[in-house]
Structures are given as structure tokens and as C-alpha cells.
Simulated scan of single mutants.
Amino acid sequence: MPRSVGLDALAILGGRSGAVLEDPPAALYWFIASGHGAEWNVAGTRVLGAESRLVIPPNRRTQGPGPHWRVCPADGMWITDAAALQAALEDVTSPQGVAAR
């Protein structure tokens, strides 16, 4: 998703977020359980499928250049609850959320 939207969603999720990959300059990626993206419908975002490829940096790489962790996958915490992520993104992209930014 676009970095600007993702940062706002991350602020809403707080400690409920799993690992978040940042690929500068413009994208953030969350990991959700397989199969939970089938009904995903959040404007400005998309779900990558099993055939998609991402460059995964070392677990503690938190700065660029290049892909790095915005939220490290600590203690195996990779997955974010898809419903919570979708709700956060809907809050951010709703007319009220856009007006608040």
C-alpha cells in the first residue's frame, strides 16, 4: 500500500501489527494469513498472491537504503490480523480519515 496510508494505518494498529516491510520510497507491506485476502476490498491497496515476490531483509534491518523493516518480525510475529488491518485502512481512507490528515 502507499507509504502515507500505511503509516497512518500503522499508527491506528499500534501493538496489534505484525511485521511491516518498507520498500522505499513509496510502499509498506503487511503479512496476513493465507486466504484472508480473497475478499480484500480497500481502495488504494492490493493483496499480493502466492506467486508474488518480495525482497525480505535481515530481521533487524530497520533502515535503508532499500527494503527494511518498519516493524521487525520479533519472536515470529509476522502476521497481522486481516480484519484489524482492513478496519485501520478503512478508517484512514474514509472521507473522515482523509479530512483528519
Score class of each variant (00 low, 15 high):
P65G: 09
I12P: 05
Y29P: 07
A99D: 07
R46N: 13
I79W: 02
D91C: 12
R3M: 04
A9S: 03
V20I: 13
F31E: 10
A99C: 05
A19W: 02
N59H: 13
W30H: 11
T80V: 03
G6H: 03
P95V: 00
E90L: 15
P65A: 07
P95R: 08
G15H: 11
D91A: 13
A43M: 06
R3Y: 11
W78L: 05
Q63N: 10
P2I: 08
W40A: 10
P57G: 09
A11F: 02
C72I: 10
G97N: 06
F31W: 13
A100K: 13
M77Y: 09
G15C: 04
P73Y: 04
G6A: 08
Q86N: 06
R3F: 08
A99H: 07
S94H: 08
V20H: 03
D23E: 14
G66C: 07
S4R: 11
D8L: 15
G18C: 11
R70S: 12
A19I: 03
D23Q: 13
A11Y: 00
G64N: 09
A43Y: 05
R53S: 15
P25D: 11
N41F: 04
A83M: 04
L10C: 04
L13I: 10
I56V: 15
E22Q: 12
R101V: 09
L48S: 03
R53L: 12
T45Y: 00
A19F: 00
A11M: 07
G44L: 09
I79A: 00
L48V: 01
A19S: 02
L54G: 10
H36M: 13
D75K: 13
C72A: 15
A43L: 08
Q96E: 12
A38P: 01
A50K: 14
Q63S: 15
R16L: 11
V5H: 09
P25E: 11
L21V: 04
I12H: 08
L85V: 02
T80H: 01
P25F: 08
S4Q: 11
I12Q: 06
S17L: 08
S52E: 02
G44V: 11
F31C: 14
E90Q: 15
A26V: 12
R46D: 10
D81S: 06
W30F: 15
A83H: 06
L89F: 03
L85Q: 02
R61V: 14
A83Q: 09
G14Y: 02
A100Y: 00
V98A: 14
V20L: 04
G44W: 07
A27N: 14
G76Y: 00
P65D: 07
A83R: 13
L85N: 03
I32F: 04
R16M: 08
A88Q: 01
E22L: 06
A9W: 01
R3P: 01
L54Y: 10
N41I: 05
D91K: 14
